Amino acid sequence: MPDIALRIERLPITHPDAMLLVEAVQEEYVLRYGGRDESPIDPADFEDPLGSFFVGYLDGEPVATGAWRRSSVSALGADVTAEVKRMYVVPAAQRRGLARRMLAHLEATAADAGIQALVLETGMKQPEAIELYLSSGYEPIPGFGYYADSELSRCFARRI
């Protein structure tokens, strides 16, 4: 596969490109689950020192997002954790390895910030996401936070 020139920029979640992609992922949740993701999101969660939000660009077009925010969830023996949020690649850019590259970027930037492990939640109706996380070394963990009792949720973690 040729190297795809994905440019990843750290931006506020309130940046227009970030907001465009966050809305697109919400529309995807409506299609798959019948409603938006209602888990609480505070834009401050993605600012230093709490977290980071990233937008990936191909040829100047925003095509991917990924973020992490510090978490109180202990996982895999790690006490300093962050939660992956808003992983998304627009349909026209899917199946090109962009989600895997964004995830690697999240892992690297979180590790640079002193995070020991990443935790995340995804849904049963997103088998491609589950496959990405499992194939990237993430292990199933018990549900946590907003999703703790959701039968549609699957939670994962990975030491970084």
Rank of each mutant, 00 (worst) to 15 (best):
A99Q: 03
V73L: 09
H105C: 09
T81W: 09
H15P: 00
A93L: 10
L134Q: 13
G34Q: 03
S153M: 09
I115Y: 02
R32N: 13
G34D: 07
E139Q: 14
R36N: 12
G77V: 11
P16F: 06
S135C: 04
D112G: 06
H15Y: 02
H15E: 05
A99F: 09
E61Y: 03
P16K: 12
L58I: 11
G114P: 01
R32Q: 15
R69L: 04
P140W: 10
M124C: 12
I8P: 05
G137D: 11
L21M: 10
L106C: 06
A111W: 08
V55C: 12
L76F: 07
E128Y: 10
V22H: 01
K85S: 04
R86D: 01
I115T: 08
A117M: 07
D45W: 13
P49V: 03
Y138C: 10
D59H: 08
V80G: 03
G143D: 11
V63K: 11
V80Q: 14
L152A: 15
Q94H: 12
L134E: 11
P43W: 12
G60H: 02
D42P: 00
E23Y: 07
R70K: 15
L134C: 03
A24C: 08
V22K: 06
A99C: 08
G77C: 07
F54M: 13
S72L: 11
L103G: 00
I8M: 12
R36F: 12
L152S: 12
Y88D: 04
A24L: 14
D48E: 14
A110L: 09
F54N: 02
E151R: 14
F156S: 02
L118K: 07
F46W: 10
I41T: 05
K125S: 03
A67Y: 08
T109C: 11
G145D: 01
E27V: 07
K85Q: 10
L98V: 02
P16N: 10
S153G: 15
D42L: 00
S136E: 03
D79T: 15
P12I: 00
F53L: 02
C155A: 02
F144N: 00
Y146T: 03
E139N: 03
A78W: 10
P140M: 13
E38I: 00
K85A: 05
E151N: 06
D45Y: 04
A75D: 07
V25E: 02
I115Q: 01
A82W: 03
P91G: 02
A129C: 13
L132E: 12
R69V: 02
A93T: 09
T14P: 05
Y29A: 15
I160W: 09
F156E: 05
I130Y: 06
